[in-house]
Amino acid sequence: MTRLERNKLADKLFKVVAICATAVALVFLAALVIDLIYDGAGRIDWSFITSFPSRRPARAGIIAAIAGTFWLMGLTALFAFPIGVGAGIYLEEYAKKNTFTKIIEVNIANLAGVPSIIYGLLGLGIFVRTFRLDQSLLTGALTLTLLILPIIIITTREALRAVPSGLRQASYALGASQWQTTYSQVLPVAMPGILTGTILALSRAIGETAPLVAIGALTYIAFLPESVMDPFTALPIQIFNWVSRPQKGFAINAAAAIIVLLCITLVLNSIAIYLRHRFKKRMRW
């Protein structure tokens, strides 16, 4: 076997290994989705979406959980986006590169890996107990904000770093201040990356159960929240409750609710892809 042939063989082998790796992930995902659809798809109808929870599995629905999830998503985006992007801009564009900012950087990277239950306990201590916000939507959203802030800060910084420095220099050359440069030139270019990161972080947040359970989100609620101080439940909590009930009907409900949650995540992720595509198309230097 010549050297060339050996290399070609190695190339082929690597390709097979890579395909297998992808297949493993996909097979498990497919198995999960197929199993869910088999169990739960038949259960999803309009009354399932629009009903409140009930002791009778066939009459129970997820409207309270969906409403809670959407409120949480909106509020979390509202808090996490400006703070995360702001912190990212500061660290990337303004902060001096010294030991102190390095320490901050390392800490943020570390925070991104902290288990979500820890954020729940933090939320319980700060928002529920100290600020007396109770088990409100505000508490839930602020807790989830803490959870995804590190991710948003990191993706914002990466997006900003990807903006060619020539763009900044050109702007300065025309007499623009640092803020004008950042706001009018750098940020819009970095936006697709930032938005994608934010939305992916959000779709992680809406699947979180542990921090919401820790702050004491409700399990049964038969009215929809009207303000940020209202109590709430969310889809993962409803699913968690149904899974642990003895009746088979609730297991089917749980599967159906998981499908709905997956659909919401899918829609969010598609929005991320669409936004990135749209912003990118417009970019012409």
């Binding site: 002791r55 004491g216 049964y220 038969a222 409750n241």
Partner: peptide, 28 residues
């Protein structure tokens, strides 16, 4: 969580019978 199903059932019936009072149940 053991008592939850009973309380949930009562809350459900109560709210159909008495509009205007809301019941919320957590599981801690």
């Amino acid at each position: 969580s053991t008592v939850f199903p009973v309380t949930e059932a009562v809350a459900e019936e109560f709210q159909t019978a008495h509009r205007g009072t809301m019941v919320t149940i957590g599981v801690s």
